[in-house]
Amino acid sequence: QGDIVVALYPYDGIHPDDLSFKKGEKMKVLEEHGEWWKAKSLLTKKEGFIPSNYVAKLN
């Protein structure tokens, strides 16, 4: 089961498979690959890669 993270900063995706998000948006982490994680937005239901240093895990 994936962790839920919250965006600390907004992110505008650079690549087509990036997931753009707004500050405060919550996402479910699907896979962790070093600095880039695959996640699904709980708001938009879209999936893509996010920079892990832009988010914090919720406990």
Rank of each mutant, 00 (worst) to 15 (best):
Q1F: 12
Q1M: 13
Q1H: 11
Q1C: 14
Q1E: 12
G2E: 10
G2F: 11
G2W: 13
G2M: 11
G2H: 13
D3Y: 15
D3N: 13
D3W: 15
D3M: 15
I4E: 05
I4V: 10
I4S: 04
I4C: 07
I4G: 03
V5S: 02
V5T: 02
V5F: 10
V5W: 14
V6D: 01
V6A: 04
V6S: 04
V6K: 04
A7V: 02
A7F: 00
A7S: 05
L8C: 10
L8W: 04
L8A: 03
Y9F: 12
Y9N: 05
Y9V: 07
Y9S: 06
Y9P: 00
P10Y: 07
P10H: 12
P10E: 11
P10C: 11
P10M: 08
P10K: 12
P10V: 07
Y11V: 02
Y11L: 03
Y11D: 00
Y11M: 03
Y11G: 01
D12F: 13
D12A: 13
D12E: 15
D12H: 14
D12I: 15
D12W: 12
G13K: 07
G13S: 11
G13R: 06
G13C: 06
G13H: 03
I14T: 12
I14S: 10
I14C: 13
I14A: 10
I14Q: 12
I14M: 11
I14V: 13
I14L: 11
I14R: 12
H15I: 05
H15E: 07
H15Q: 08
H15T: 09
H15S: 10
H15C: 13
P16W: 08
P16V: 09
P16C: 11
P16E: 11
D17M: 12
D17Q: 13
D17I: 07
D17S: 11
D18H: 15
D18G: 09
D18P: 02
D18S: 14
L19K: 00
L19G: 00
S20F: 05
S20C: 08
S20E: 05
S20R: 06
S20L: 04
S20M: 06
S20I: 06
F21G: 00
F21C: 03
F21S: 00
F21K: 01
F21P: 00
F21H: 00
K22S: 10
K22V: 14
K22T: 09
K22W: 05
K22Q: 11
K22C: 09
K22P: 04
K23Q: 09
K23I: 09
K23G: 05
K23W: 07
K23H: 06
K23P: 06
G24W: 07
G24V: 01
G24C: 10
G24K: 03
E25R: 00
E25N: 02
E25Q: 03
K26N: 06
K26Y: 15
K26V: 14
K26Q: 11
K26W: 15
M27Y: 01
M27F: 13
M27G: 00
M27H: 02
M27R: 00
M27L: 12
K28S: 08
K28I: 15
K28L: 15
K28W: 15
V29P: 02
V29H: 01
V29Q: 01
V29K: 04
V29N: 00
V29F: 04
L30H: 04
L30N: 03
L30M: 09
L30P: 01
L30Y: 07
L30E: 04
L30I: 10
L30D: 03
E31T: 08
E31P: 00
E31Q: 10
E31F: 09
E31R: 07
E32G: 11
E32A: 15
E32L: 14
H33G: 10
H33R: 11
H33N: 12
G34E: 05
G34T: 05
G34R: 06
G34C: 07
E35G: 09
E35T: 13
E35W: 13
E35N: 10
W36D: 03
W36Q: 08
W37C: 09
W37S: 07
W37D: 02
K38D: 02
K38Y: 15
K38M: 12
K38N: 05
K38E: 05
K38C: 12
K38F: 15
A39M: 05
A39V: 15
K40R: 14
K40L: 13
K40Q: 14
K40W: 10
K40E: 11
S41M: 05
S41Q: 03
S41K: 05
S41C: 05
S41P: 01
L42S: 03
L42T: 05
L42N: 04
L42I: 07
L42F: 08
L43W: 14
L43A: 11
L43F: 09
L43K: 10
L43S: 11
L43C: 11
L43G: 06
T44E: 03
K45P: 02
K45Q: 14
K45H: 15
K45T: 09
K45N: 13
K45A: 14
K46A: 10
K46Y: 06
K46V: 06
K46G: 07
E47K: 08
E47A: 08
E47D: 06
E47R: 06
G48A: 02
G48V: 00
G48M: 00
G48E: 00
G48T: 00
G48N: 01
G48S: 00
F49M: 15
F49S: 06
F49W: 14
F49L: 12
F49R: 13
I50E: 01
I50T: 01
I50N: 01
I50Q: 01
I50L: 05
I50Y: 01
I50R: 00
P51F: 04
P51S: 03
P51G: 02
P51I: 03
P51L: 05
P51R: 05
S52H: 09
S52G: 07
S52A: 14
S52D: 04
S52N: 07
N53V: 09
N53S: 15
N53G: 13
N53E: 09
N53D: 10
Y54I: 07
Y54C: 09
Y54A: 08
Y54E: 03
V55R: 00
V55D: 00
V55I: 06
V55F: 13
A56C: 14
A56T: 12
A56Q: 13
K57N: 07
K57G: 06
K57P: 12
K57A: 09
L58H: 07
L58T: 08
L58F: 10
L58I: 13
N59A: 13
N59K: 11
N59P: 15
N59I: 14
